[in-house]
Simulated assay, not measured.
Amino acid sequence: MTDIELLTECKKGLSLPVDGTDFDGVLMQKIRVVKSFLKGAGVSETMLADDLAVGVIVLGVTDIWNLTGGETKFSPAFYVMANQLAYRSQVV
């Protein structure tokens, strides 16, 4: 899935207008951060294309959407699913 497609999915997850562009810049930053976090956790490029990865990226962006400066707070669900992606990356 391309970053543009992920942007649309994140907008849906945050209940933002899909055709609105006001938050595209900040959402793309968060998409890149979450993808980079997942890669650093051992998720392969192949697994980043998996349907589960789309959900994990949307969840991660949603988790960090309203954080204040200096905070990083992913949900327990994000970590569980990220671990599954990392595990499955080792199997592939």
Rank of each mutant, 00 (worst) to 15 (best):
L27H: 03
F74R: 00
T2I: 06
V26N: 14
G20T: 01
I64V: 11
D63L: 00
V61P: 03
C10W: 01
W65T: 11
V26E: 11
E5M: 03
L85G: 06
V91S: 10
N83K: 11
G70Y: 02
M28G: 08
W65A: 11
Y87Q: 12
A82N: 03
I57P: 04
T62W: 06
G60Y: 01
W65I: 05
V80R: 14
L48C: 06
C10I: 09
R32F: 13
V34W: 04
T2Y: 03
V91R: 10
D19N: 13
T2R: 09
G55D: 09
Q84I: 12
L52I: 08
G13S: 03
M1Q: 11
K39T: 13
M47D: 07
A82H: 05
T46L: 11
L38E: 06
V34F: 05
L14H: 02
P17F: 03
M81Q: 14
L14Y: 05
V54M: 08
W65Q: 08
G40I: 10
T68W: 04
M81W: 15
Y87R: 11
D50I: 10
K30T: 03
D24Q: 12
F37H: 14
G60L: 05
P76N: 11
G42I: 00
K12V: 09
T68G: 12
A53I: 06
T72H: 07
L48W: 04
G69S: 13
G69W: 06
L67K: 12
G40S: 09
S89W: 00
S44A: 02
Q90T: 12
E45K: 15
D3A: 02
W65N: 14
V58Q: 02
V33D: 12
Q29P: 02
M47K: 13
T8M: 06
V43I: 04
K73M: 15
E71D: 14
V43C: 04
L67H: 12
K73R: 15
Q84S: 13
F23T: 12
R32T: 15
D51C: 07
G40R: 09
F74P: 00
K30H: 10
W65D: 13
M28R: 14
K12N: 04
D63E: 06
K35D: 00
Y79E: 00
W65R: 03
G13D: 04
A86R: 00
V56P: 01
T2S: 05
L48T: 07
L59Q: 14
K39A: 14
E45Y: 06
M1P: 01
V56E: 05
L52C: 02
T72R: 09
L67N: 13
T21S: 15
G70R: 10
Q84T: 12
V80N: 11
F23L: 12
